[in-house]
Nucleic acid binder design. Sequence first.
DNA 1: TATCGTGACATACCGACGGTATGTGAAAGG
DNA 2: CCTTTCACATACCGTCGGTATGTCACGATA
Lengths: 195, 195
Amino acid sequence: MNVRARQREVTRATLLRESRRLFAARGYGAVSLSEIVAAAGVTKGALYHLFESKAELFRAVLEQVQQEVARIVAETADAEDDPWTRFTAGCQAFLTASTAPDIQRIMLVDGPAVLGWNEWRAMDEAGSGSHLADVITELIDQGLIPPQPVAPLTHLLSGAMNEAALWLAASGDPEAHLPDTRAALARMLDALRLP
Amino acid sequence: MNVRARQREVTRATLLRESRRLFAARGYGAVSLSEIVAAAGVTKGALYHLFESKAELFRAVLEQVQQEVARIVAETADAEDDPWTRFTAGCQAFLTASTAPDIQRIMLVDGPAVLGWNEWRAMDEAGSGSHLADVITELIDQGLIPPQPVAPLTHLLSGAMNEAALWLAASGDPEAHLPDTRAALARMLDALRLP
DNA sequence: TATCGTGACATACCGACGGTATGTGAAAGG
DNA sequence: CCTTTCACATACCGTCGGTATGTCACGATA
């Protein structure tokens, strides 16, 4: 790889790292581009050479965060053989991962507001969202869940886990409430299962 | 009431109405104060005389929206005698009410991002959120739901309904998908019930 | 290796935004 | 009446996101 192309990647990675840190700490609206480029040690010229706008920079950060979460969920789920266990383990992994503060603010709070809910949803479905729909489809096919349209149930569960993660992180002591929340989620998932 | 005090209320109501319309249509970030005061037929002096900041104006709008939703939910629920039916009817009413586009963007998308999730949650609990926690507590007391901590289950259900409403409104044809979504929610709620 | 185009930035600047300080005229109080 | 108060209007500010232009090292070509 070229020196130029490599340097470009370094600058881009630095901007992504610093903007992710600042966005996570104080939110999209409260962080200025001047702040970001100062933290990254470059100027606005560099930023606008690499990203089209502030919103596009945020989108790139969000993409990175979502892929991290999707990877964790996929790895946890794939470690299980039983389809039902894959389902519940993946959900629990998502809940735990989404409790991290930087993932919270970027992925769950600012994401929909900055990009609009439609685009946010589209990005989510390219990440962990599709895993959920896939595994639910599988469970219906195998007769473990009553036959039903997949999309509504997927969004009910996705929203439940998102909100639970937000509450967990905001509740002061996530570690303390995690067991109860995991238990409540487990009860909810088990309740969906056919006898 | 004074002429002055009455005029003040008129101006305030006009600003709330116009800003709600604009916030709902294009989102908090994309609407400027100049636009709002122009639509309301006043100047920024009036706006800053009545509200401390743009965020405080938004908070006043959100408060209004949340109270409307809470009223609908409460009226629907209170029309039922059976505790379990009160629960499910209230949830269905919330789902339907939250599908309205202006309620969507203001209450579910921009609310957490503009005010922060903690403040948004606090406001929600002053509105329809507390109803949900109350009725769940009641159902546990009556032995209709397994004994468990109330908060985690409340947030799981609240998040499920929020996300389902967002998906419903974004799915192009809400009327078409509403029955399936209501059915999925009903299944989820029934699954929580003790035999 | 001399040349020259290209690209990865830096610099300088713009209009618009949220917010504030001050002015004004009509209603309220005496 | 006369004075105070208050619901605004006017004029202005610093900062923001965004852009147009300059600069200089790299890299391909002869």
